[in-house]
Design a protein around this nucleic acid. Sequence first.
DNA 1: AAATTTTTTAATCAAATGATTAAAAAAAAT
DNA 2: ATTTTTTTTAATCATTTGATTAAAAAATTT
Lengths: 201, 201
Amino acid sequence: MAKKRETDLSTEEKIIEAARKVFTQKGYAATRTRDIAEEAGINLALLNYYFRSKEKLFEKVMFEKVHKLFGAIAPVLNDENSDLTEKIEKIVENYINMLVMNPDLPLFVLSEIKNNSEQFGDKFNMGKLMLESVFARQIRKRRPDISPLHIIMSVLGLVLFPFIGRPVLRAIGAVDEASFMGLMEERKKLVPHWVAAILNS
Amino acid sequence: MAKKRETDLSTEEKIIEAARKVFTQKGYAATRTRDIAEEAGINLALLNYYFRSKEKLFEKVMFEKVHKLFGAIAPVLNDENSDLTEKIEKIVENYINMLVMNPDLPLFVLSEIKNNSEQFGDKFNMGKLMLESVFARQIRKRRPDISPLHIIMSVLGLVLFPFIGRPVLRAIGAVDEASFMGLMEERKKLVPHWVAAILNS
DNA sequence: AAATTTTTTAATCAAATGATTAAAAAAAAT
DNA sequence: ATTTTTTTTAATCATTTGATTAAAAAATTT
């Protein structure tokens, strides 16, 4: 049995890096394995040698992306040592910092999940887990009169939607890249204020 | 030259109705013309007889969908006879009423625009038009200290995002169809309140 | 250095898919 | 009723695309 050489990792990493780029840019269905191979600068057969199929490669990329998207909120959900205000500040900051580096992430992940929602059914109790989290409990305590889902959807909408709508805003010439990112920086402070106002309304 | 018969419209309408359904459900790339033909209960060649190609058929559907999505906000933008509060109420109500009937619309349109943003470049000044609308002017008057884009993104985020995130919420078992729609009904009253709170914050 | 294992490639396959063609069926016009 | 036009279908094409195979090249082991 041979040891792994640097080139092994390098080639495999070149392929998956290309896959990240092309899948995120065009979606699963519109991506051709040849696109990925070309982007990685390797032969098509090599892609199937390292990963068994387009779907297997996609699953790897998708797994990463899903974790990146939900990783911004997950560690905050059950933190017993922060209050509601602090949690919201943390979620907003985590998300915007990550999304500025990965602006296409939400639209990619949400689209692919919609087209393949069965695969995410194994996380059957993730919904319950979210609604029984410390975060949800703190929301309920502050506003027993409305569903915590309303607040969660609102926070996520205020933070994620600009990135989801960004392609349209850019297409119609409403913002350029630089000013969009400037607005997102502003939103790190604005959104927590606004959510506080919502919780008091 | 022969007159058009009822069957003409009926067949053409059967095809485009099937196209609406399949394209919206699976997106352009994942849709096969055979799927549409089967859904319409007609021969594949007939699809190419009525519409010249998959792309032409898609353009027809896409045009409708884009207009449906932006039609909920467009007539309100330049209404001189309503104040900011009334406009927000109207936008929220229009949108939620329409989205309850077309929950997949936003994710579909935003995804397809992202993958084909060149085609929407002809509406080059639509961005300027939006930022010079009566609506934008009224926002600026109320809050000269922040970009009206912040408020517009926030209203749209609060209204559209729940529908964009719905596939995930359903996949993780956080809501069933009925309770989701119930929440959206509640949001018709909640979101205008919240936006008012944001504007005062 | 020789043998073995791992990596890479060129060539090719088989299935899927958008589209066309030629002919039949139906409808409309004469 | 006959002719002409329009609609529909079955069969087929050509291209694309995911995947495989057999052989070469490179690296590793012995």
